[in-house]
């Protein structure tokens, strides 16, 4: 019985957390974020400011979820995420909260976001003010990511492009490899685990498990993309080598079967 009650409590808590997230998205997206961006005439400075505010919002949100007993988060190698230089952060994508968890660990983070967010009232404010990159620009998405890395910024990419299929790894696309190779930025591979599996692709938010979600984020060693490819290898081939190396790393670390 106690288990049932606590499960209902968790459903209510999860609902409250999502509602708060949506409300914060609208409220801050309409007020604080755009104002922070306008504070500077240099759009880059404005974006940094907004990204820092997003980081604080995510930190507060993660703390709120911890207080409600919904999640637990353990992080290994967080200091590698905070190095103040260009890093292409790649991660597997098991849950809906991955961006929030990662964002709560880094004060500056550029993300590629679905184009729909620009017409979603909950997200429009934040994605425009923070200067996130819409995902429908074709090869220009890769160029935009590379450009930000060349400016010394952190960029987050999920090589699977979307959330991972349940307990597995999806197909790795080669965009992240192209970005790493063209910008020559170091890759920081991040492994995200969530036990029990929850908030997966196609799962309803209220499909809450009986226990607290235990997130673990493991930040790997910096990887130089050039160390993975030959000197004069054509970029199509080099991108395949880097993508294969990344996928092997994740498959080995997560010990999952490929789909």
């Amino acid at each position: 019985m106690r288990r049932r009650v606590s499960r209902w409590g968790r459903i209510v808590g999860t609902g409250a957390a999502f509602a708060l997230f949506g409300l914060l998205g609208v409220a801050l997206g309409l007020s604080v974020y755009p104002a922070a961006k306008r504070c500077s005439s240099d759009p880059r400075v404005g974006e940094f400011r907004v990204q820092r505010l997003v980081h604080w919002t995510f930190r507060a949100f993660v703390r709120f979820m911890k207080l409600l007993g919904l999640v637990e988060l353990s992080v290994h190698g967080a200091e590698r995420l905070r190095a103040p230089s260009a890093r292409l952060i790649v991660a597997n994508h098991p849950t809906l909260l991955d961006v929030v968890m990662l964002g709560s660990l880094m004060p500056q983070l550029d993300c590629v976001v679905k184009r729909e967010a620009w017409s979603n009232p909950f997200m429009r404010g934040v994605v425009t003010s923070a200067g996130y990159i819409p995902n429908d620009l074709g090869e220009d998405v890769l160029a935009a990511c590379a450009e930000r890395l060349q400016q010394g910024r952190r960029v987050l990419l999920f090589p699977e492009g979307t959330r991972s299929p349940k307990g597995q790894l999806g197909t790795f696309r080669r965009g992240a490899a192209h970005v790493a190779l063209s910008s020559q930025a170091p890759i920081l591979p991040v492994v995200i685990r969530c036990e029990p599996a929850s908030l997966m692709r196609g799962q309803k938010w209220y499909d809450v498990p009986d226990e607290k979600l235990r997130f673990s984020i493991e930040v790997g060693e910096v990887l130089d993309p050039r160390s993975l490819v030959g000197d004069r290898e054509p970029r199509a081939s080099a991108a395949r080598d880097v993508t294969r190396a990344l996928r092997d790393f994740y498959a080995k670390t997560l010990q999952t079967l490929s789909v």
């Binding site: 074709g138 090869e139 890769l142 696309r173 080669r174 192209h178 054509p234 970029r235 199509a236 991108a239």
Partner: peptide
């Protein structure tokens, strides 16, 4: 092949 490959 992907869109980058098509260009190459």
């Amino acid at each position: 092949l992907d869109s980058v490959d098509a260009i190459d």
